[in-house]
Design a protein around this nucleic acid. Sequence first.
DNA 1: GTAAGAAAAATTTTT
DNA 2: TTTTTCTTAC
Length: 773
Amino acid sequence: MNFNFLNDLNESQRQAVEYIDGASLVIAGAGSGKTRVLTYKIAYLLTKGFPPSSILALTFTNKAAREMKERIAQIVGERTARYLWMGTFHSIFSRILRNEAQYTGYSKNFTIYDSSDSSSLIKSILKERNLDTKVYPPGLIQSRISTAKNNLITPEAYAVNIDFIKNDRQSRIPLLSEIYQTYCNRCKQADAMDFDDLLLQTNVLFRNHPEVLEKYQQLFQFILVDEYQDTNFAQYLIIKKLAEHHERICVVGDDAQSIYSFRGANIDNILQFRNAYHDARIFKLEQNYRSTQTIVNAANSLIDKNRAQIQKTIFSEKEIGHPIKLLSVFTDYEEGMTVAEHILELYASNNYRYADMAVLYRTNAQSRILEETFRKQGIPYRIYGGLSFYQRKEIKDVIAYCRLVCNQNDEEALKRIINFPARGIGETTVGKLVECAQNNNVGIWEVLTNLNKYNVPVNAGTASKLNDFHNMIETFSKEVEIKNAYELAVDIVKNTGLLNEANFDHSTESISRKENIEEFLKAIHEFCENKQEEGESLPILSDFLSDVSLLTDQDTDKDSMSDKVTLMTVHAAKGLEFKAVFIVGMEEELFPSMFRITNERELEEERRLFYVAITRAKERCFISYAKSRFRNGKTNFCTPSRFIKDIDPQFLEFSQEKEPAFQKKKYMNWDDEVENERNRFYSETNEKETYSEAQTTHFAPRKLKKLDQSSDEKIITDNSSFPVGTMVKHQLFGIGKVLETSISNGNEKASIDFGEKGVKSLLLKFAKLEVVK
DNA sequence: GTAAGAAAAATTTTT
DNA sequence: TTTTTCTTAC
């Protein structure tokens, strides 16, 4: 082993690595060598005599875990690195839950429900109870249940909590508590855990079985947690429990990069670390090795506008570099062209390959237009996100078959494929099965196995179809334990006719579906080979399934070698870096998202998201915003994001665009107008007034009329349906009071105070408001 | 019971 | 715009 690796570290990094006697928090600014510290720390622990199997290292993504493992393997060798407990929270604790299945009430091979399984289960529960999905929106229920689980509130605890019950009654969803209970019962019956369960059930396991907890407390001599700012309460408590005795724990994170609160992440975990671990040492990694001084300073000036944060001074000793270039364009289409031009220019300079560049956006929907322009311009690109490989219909179908074969209680899988490929078992029949199952308090599979016993009211033809289906699944399931996963999967795909179904015509889509299935089978094959290399004689299908359900698209980047521009959301870009970064769509209501501008906490998170975006850039950063954007089927007029103003202008450069060839004649005077607006933009001191004023003052009204009949002005109105002071009810936000109604862009808006949920500005045509007396 | 076609609705981030 | 749900005709 190379003992000199500590020399690669700067002073604060080295201190962070060498402190192993107690709890520590490492505040790792963007680009400060966080991964290096983590990997070296693990290597250091190994040299200090900690066996690899006594080190628990938790990451946020599979990719991060894999990369870190590789880097550690380079230092200490693969044979040692292999035994580290390193992975995502979800994968590590699903492993523990499987190992300890005897204590959990679930089987060793429990199924993992993904969010679409959860959602469809919730929908069936609502349907069975005859509840209107307008009163009980499935999405809202799902997120409430998820929040409850993330905060370790079991259905039993929920039912007796007066605050929740009162709150639900106020939101007009008093049955939520019961739905939550039913949801959990049904998951249990299906021998399935959803993502949140993996953390919740781990906590339940540790609470109910101190001897099991004790075992893992002993096992894990040292615990490391990456991306600590993104942990939720369930994760916090698991770590706290595991580290209780020895408190040899090191968490690494950056509060400035906390961007997952919508998933339950609690930034207070990192801000209040000392409350949980009183003697914790705090190390700050403040030198940024990634970006130019300009980029670092610009990002600093931005994040400085947030209130909740840990004091730190991020600095760079790299060159000053180029200013961040603002690209003001008229349309989203033009934005794509401008970005494309810059990409081609950088590429032509020979200093940048395509793979050195990334385009980051707030929402996936923005990728389409970029894709179009890149195709036209012949720029190779790769899109991350959107529909992941495992989310494709044909793949989900194959997985559903595999799931059902491994676990006949998996009702979501069963419902998905009982009539796919079509075999004459329609909705009515499934309805009868479900009803029968409910009445007898058993699972659908049980009913399917004993059609006669349960007197399912179906005719002979249907009964025989049901039996055929039942027998087919049963035949496969008998082979699960004795057959190699790959062989069984091939059997399933062949015998069920899934391949034919996918390839029913010769369209490109059809061929691609077929290829996807083949690709999937190949993945199973690889899985088997890997397992066999590790010495497992018979890798079975259920093993593969427990792996695959925790994989995401990030884990399946096949051609990372090829020279392509990366297109992804800012969220997906966390942890990555590129020589040049284009942040597009920096407009109000898009970035920051319109859903998050009324709540200060959420707005700060949006700002952190922008901070993450900027700090991905090593050398060049471009920020673009369009005046108009095609969104949700129509053209919207946009104003530049308030966040642009948060950046100290000394780090910015405005585009001095020459007339691009593609620019239409009617936009000829645009540059002048933009110039005016820029001046206005920065001389403006009254934040509130800036954008609406700028709009009316600097747009020649005549011109606007030519483009769109509607005006950009915000006009305060007196809406007869919702006069000021009216109490209204909103699906998501509950009861609120109308503060103001207005018309802007021809859209009727209302500003409504929802109390705890904050003041929201809603478009009346979207928000289905009901007046309450 | 099925499939296509029409109408309506929803538009964020994801382990 | 895309996706989901509803309707209608086979």
